[in-house]
């Protein structure tokens, strides 16, 4: 075999191998990122469903509700940005039934520049559970991945939320 050819062949092989390795690495990185994004959204769902029980007032599909959860707004129809939703989760909405979830909200002026004392009777209610910034981020990502800007929820949405071990979605099956 020609030495130069052998050298060129080896270099070409090395290049191909490096390229494959690089693509693989990118894929692995991309898969990791996707898995992480999915994990965060699933974590957000758990908070929405159980830990903070956001669904008690906003309904499981975030379409808003009334009654013993207050006149809770639809997050499917909201025009708020993710940052604005995050702020609302963190600070609640003074004068309404929307609770704050940052444990230290209104102990200083981090929320809307006011304190508990300044808000008086407009102080938002205590939450079912306090959430840290990662948790607030997760619940916002869940909402924007699943509900915000969507039309009416479907049977498939219902099953995705509640699972198949309950009759919960049967009324939507038609």
């Amino acid at each position: 075999m020609d030495v130069r050819f052998a050298l060129r062949f080896s270099l070409a092989l090395a290049l191909i191998a490096a390229t494959i390795a690089s693509v693989r690495a990118q894929n692995v990185q991309s898969d990791t990122q996707n898995a992480e994004a999915a994990r965060v959204i699933a974590h957000g769902k758990d908070i929405f469903k159980t830990k903070a029980t956001c669904q008690f007032c906003h309904k499981w599909d975030a379409s808003g509700d009334q009654g013993y959860g207050g006149n809770a707004l639809s997050l499917r129809a909201t025009r708020l940005t993710p940052a604005q939703v995050a702020e609302t989760v963190k600070c609640g909405r003074p004068g309404t039934g929307m609770p704050y979830h940052d444990q230290f909200a209104y102990t200083d002026k981090r929320c809307y520049g006011v304190t508990r004392e300044q808000l008086g009777k407009d102080m938002p209610p205590e939450p079912n559970a306090f959430l840290n910034s990662d948790e607030i981020d997760a619940v916002v990502k869940y909402l924007f991945a699943t509900d915000v800007g969507r039309g009416p929820s479907t049977y498939e949405d219902c099953v995705a939320f509640w699972g198949t071990e309950t009759r919960q979605c049967e009324p939507m099956k038609q």
Binding site: D65, Q66, G67, Y68, G70, N71
Partner: peptide, 16 residues
């Protein structure tokens, strides 16, 4: 309004 929907003609609101 569908069966199982809340049917309360509004809500209450804590004022203190």
């Amino acid at each position: 309004v569908k069966p199982r929907d809340r049917f309360s003609g509004g809500a209450f609101k804590m004022t203190g």
